[in-house]
């Protein structure tokens, strides 16, 4: 564990200036639930830790029926999970936020941190991918936005340049007659990293046909990603048991899991199949209860 400087700027411009001028390695700190142990155990060796929790732009959590959800990068999972409009319009995101570790973790961990840590198994990412979320990035050379799916470049790696910060994630309002769900599989009932995670979103046309389906996977590829073949297989079809099963198999086929201490590749594929079907079923259940 190397000594480091700690800074907690209160404005975005101050933070960007610190990032731009820093000589050594700067690590932005939001909830700290990943970074603090990484630093303390010597897995990351920053010279400066930049606490972004005091920057108002990163603490925003607002819903606008036209714009959708603006989700500041430093907002904690428990604030998101208990936010009435998140629960109403983005229940899959609320579900995922309530799965990140324990209550104590959720009180600190942020969606921004979960994204920037770029773990293939990040629970909050698959629902955001299904919801077509976009990432807003600020840096020395100005601002940019990207689709969240293109934010990741592999385990622990993102497109952020060393002078850039993730400011917020913007989630468009959910499509009409849609429902989404996130499920993950862990060996215990709590306090584990996903062996596999699947988010699904289903948009029904007026009847029982599937107008659009979106499926995103976690922990079964170097980064969380959508499963377009599985999505395409559902489009325009009635969502019967056979269709769901097929989607699951296609999603499993798409997955590129590795074998590691948390699970074997073959098992992970099986889990993708099961979780895809189960999340789709959950979507249909929700739509049965009353489509939005």
């Amino acid at each position: 564990m190397r000594a480091f400087e700690y800074r907690a700027p209160t404005t975005l411009s101050e933070a960007l200036k610190l990032l731009a001028e820093a000589k050594g390695e700067v690590r932005p700190l939001a909830g700290g639930t990943d970074l603090v142990p990484q630093v303390r155990e010597g897995r990351k060796r920053p010279t400066m830790v930049l606490d972004v929790k005091r920057i108002s732009e990163l603490r925003r959590l607002e819903y606008d029926p036209g714009m959708g959800l603006r989700l500041g990068a430093a907002v904690s999972c428990s604030v998101i999970a208990s936010h009435p409009q998140v629960r109403r319009y983005f229940p899959a995101l609320a579900q995922a936020c309530a799965l990140v570790g324990s209550i104590q973790i959720q009180n600190r961990a942020t969606v921004g941190g979960n994204i920037c840590n770029a773990s293939p198994s990040a629970d909050t990412v698959p629902p955001l991918l299904c919801l077509d979320a976009r990432a807003f990035i600020a840096g020395g050379r100005g601002q940019r936005e990207v689709a969240l799916e293109s934010f990741f470049r592999g385990p622990g790696r993102t497109i952020l340049a060393r002078d850039e910060l993730l400011v917020e994630v913007v989630v468009p309002p959910p499509p009409k007659f849609s429902a989404a769900s996130y499920m993950r599989f862990i060996p215990r009932s709590e306090m584990d990293i996903a062996v596999a995670g699947v988010a699904s979103l289903v948009v029904l046309d007026g009847g029982r046909q599937c107008q659009e389906a979106r499926i995103a996977l976690a922990a079964v590829a170097p980064q969380p990603s959508r499963a377009p073949e599985a999505e395409a297989a559902l489009q325009g079809r009635p969502l019967d048991a056979k269709a769901l099963e097929e989607a699951g198999e296609l999603a499993a086929k798409m997955a590129k899991p590795i074998t590691d201490i948390r699970g074997g590749a073959e098992y992970r594929r099986e889990l993708v199949k099961v979780l895809t079907r189960r999340t789709l079923e959950q979507c249909l259940e929700a739509l049965k209860r009353g489509p939005r």
């Binding site: 700690y6 907690a8 700190l29 700290g32 603090v36 104590q104 973790i105 009180n107 600190r108």
Partner: peptide
Amino acid sequence: PAYSCLVLAVE
């Protein structure tokens, strides 16, 4: 409630 082992004192 928070895990105090995951919070830097300076935070």
